[in-house]
Design a protein around this nucleic acid. Sequence first.
DNA 1: GTTAACTTACGTTCTAGTAAGTAACTTTGC
DNA 2: GCAAAGTTACTTACTAGAACGTAAGTTAAC
Lengths: 211, 211
Amino acid sequence: MAGQRRQPRSRPETLARRRDIVDAAVEIFGSKGFTGGTLQEIADQVGMTHAGILHHFGSKHALLLEVLTHRDETDVADLEEQHIPDGMPLFRHLVRTAFINAHRAGIVQAYVVLSAESVTDDHPGRDFFQKRYESLRGEIAHAFAVVCAERGIDEPETIGYASAAILAVMDGLQVQWLLDPSAVDLGRATEFAIEAIVDSVLSPAPSPLAE
Amino acid sequence: MAGQRRQPRSRPETLARRRDIVDAAVEIFGSKGFTGGTLQEIADQVGMTHAGILHHFGSKHALLLEVLTHRDETDVADLEEQHIPDGMPLFRHLVRTAFINAHRAGIVQAYVVLSAESVTDDHPGRDFFQKRYESLRGEIAHAFAVVCAERGIDEPETIGYASAAILAVMDGLQVQWLLDPSAVDLGRATEFAIEAIVDSVLSPAPSPLAE
DNA sequence: GTTAACTTACGTTCTAGTAAGTAACTTTGC
DNA sequence: GCAAAGTTACTTACTAGAACGTAAGTTAAC
């Protein structure tokens, strides 16, 4: 049903060149945003003209989608990798990812900038991020369900809030960390927050905010 | 010491016009970002030419800073309002703000987009957001200190992580909520997360992630 | 000898900013 | 109280540059 499968694309040199371009695009879009970054800058970084990039990807829009979906090799969240951890190991994995990300400012910045930019009207990445968050929330919620089952407790309705909140802290801490790395310890702060949220789902405490 | 205080600016009609422009800028920058939004669009919305806007603010850059610093009237975080709540009331205030924000998508979007965009290189809003987060973290940390003192407990070192984390969840949940309002209950999710974090500072539990 | 991987060159559109002009309102001199 | 002078709030018109995209040509691989 899809038009034409491209077998010609399979030439190894060409594939490597495309990878170079995507890598450069991650860096440029990460440091300038999608709207602010230009094909020219990306082209300069891989040593060709901007028309050469359009030859490979057709449009800036298409290049962005390639950047977003083919981040596999240099993954940020690593959730969709070979074997997705589940249950408690998932939460440990998320914390570990935060510690690793503290040494990968480039990719982190690309995701922070592009995900927030995607909420703007008609942004080409909007659909991608909407589905990504939905899927990630689902995986985290599932991990909560597994953990609850393991401990023989009913799944509290807070699981939905907690799943969104975990992703939210991770993203939000990245913004603060990017703005001032010396002010925020990305790994430890993420660890603290995830522990707090997980604990609050498993052993609900009376609200400390109640008057 | 400052050059010349402008008394002419105090003309009420002019001030109102400037407010109109700033309001329009919030909407445009919120829906398209700073880089993506144009003076033309802002001008259209207030019914003048883009040169008219430059007459008032001098440059697009300066208009952005005005948008960021003069959000006072339609405040998002409301922290710097008349009397800053402190101690436990601050946390309640933050939760209340989240519930209110759920009905103010426009301004929320402006802040989400601009704060994330500000991490890009040489962004004119970078300095603003860096200082803003620093100041907000400080206020939240102070509230924690007050609460600890009230209960006669030592301030745990987790206060720093918790302060950053609270701001982070608020921001991160806004992103997810803007992408899909039906999937995230902004108010309740924020409430849950803040309660979890506050509780975790006041009554530290053994890490649920420990193997 | 066809296809892929480019480059050069061009077109169109759009951008922020500037310069100069104009109408209206304020202030000042008297 | 009123006219001259100055200031403000714009507009129109322009500049200079950059952006993405396209079309056509060129070299090299298979």
